[in-house]
């Protein structure tokens, strides 16, 4: 039987080193991947149907001329513009995610964090926000105010 040369031995050792390294990396990956998946939160349930404003929300709307309500994971700004038309926009500023407000005197939507301004349709007027606010359909049915999906 022929003896393996020293070169064969080295390559066999290199192969075993490589195999061991692969095993270590594989084991670590198998341990870490579930942690990465665990860190990401479960998807939040969106609103499954129309959102009805509560009596308290309606009272706030009458008093402040705007109210912020929740629809699933989304915050919505409901307000009456200068022509008394009811409107609904996303309340999350497209710049850095602060909650915006309606300024009745100026007829604009304003974000206090970085001084972003939008018109009543949600279009950017000035400041750093890169995109318009999303608009939602809102209707008044008697005393009931209902938000029902995005405007296309």
């Amino acid at each position: 039987m022929t003896q393996p040369s020293s070169e064969d031995l080295v390559s066999r050792r290199s192969f075993l080193d490589w195999l061991l390294g692969l095993g270590v990396v594989g084991t670590l990956a198998a341990a870490i991947l579930p942690i990465f998946r665990y860190l990401k939160p479960l998807p939040q349930q969106g609103a499954s149907g129309p959102v009805h404003l509560s009596a308290q929300d309606t009272a706030t709307l009458d008093h402040d001329q705007f109210v912020i309500v929740r629809s699933g994971a989304t915050r919505l700004l409901v307000f009456e513009d200068s022509s008394q038309k009811l409107r609904c926009l996303s309340a999350k500023c497209t710049h850095e995610g602060c909650t915006v407000q309606y300024v009745p005197g100026d007829g604009v939507i304003w974000c206090a964090c970085h001084n972003g301004r939008f018109d009543v349709d949600g279009r950017v007027i000035s400041g750093p926000p890169p995109r318009p606010l999303e608009a939602f359909r809102v209707d008044k049915e008697g005393k009931d105010i209902v938000i029902d999906g995005k405007l296309t």
């Binding site: 912020i68 309500v69 929740r70 915050r75 602060c98 909650t99 206090a112 964090c113």
Partner: peptide
């Protein structure tokens, strides 16, 4: 209160 707008001067 996430349903309050950001206040001026924040």
């Amino acid at each position: 209160n996430p349903l309050q707008p950001a206040y001026p001067g924040i």
